[in-house]
């Protein structure tokens, strides 16, 4: 199961890099989203993937040691997903704003702040 998820995570990262190499801001953004999902999957896999018991103590405080998945990476993951969601929403809003401002999404042509021609 871990191997499968690791391969999936690698595939997501590879796809995302391909997308991020594009000059189009929207595709870059999709690439970024895939990248963060790939990383999230990797963290999930690091916390043991098992269909066993939930990570809760038993009635007498006994530990269901082996069958239990580690709960902490899942908590970290939740935080990371939330943060990623916020950042992505902001980046999306920025992209819309950039499209309205420039009329296109080609990053190579966004040179208002960095004019290409040099002064004599």
């Amino acid at each position: 199961m871990e191997t499968l998820v690791a391969c999936l995570s690698g595939f997501l990262v590879a796809t995302s890099i391909w997308l991020m190499l594009s000059g189009n801001l929207m595709r870059f953004l999709f690439g970024l989203l895939l990248l963060s999902n790939g990383v999230n999957l990797a963290i999930l896999a690091a916390g043991r993937l098992t269909p066993g018991a939930p990570p809760l103590l038993g009635v007498k405080g006994e530990l269901p040691a082996d069958t239990m998945a580690n709960a902490l990476p899942q908590a970290l993951l939740l935080t990371a997903i939330v943060i990623g969601f916020g950042l992505f929403a902001f980046a999306l809003a920025l992209t819309i704003q950039a499209y309205r401002t420039f009329g296109h999404l080609e990053v190579d042509r966004m040179r208002i702040a960095e004019p290409a021609e040099e002064r004599e």
Partner: peptide
């Protein structure tokens, strides 16, 4: 646009590093 996109990549790398380190 440039600040946000490049910083987001750094962020994801940081997260990946922290996650692997925990693993």
């Amino acid at each position: 646009v440039k600040y946000v996109t490049l910083n987001l990549i750094a962020t994801v790398l940081f997260l990946a590093g922290a996650g692997l380190l925990y693993g």
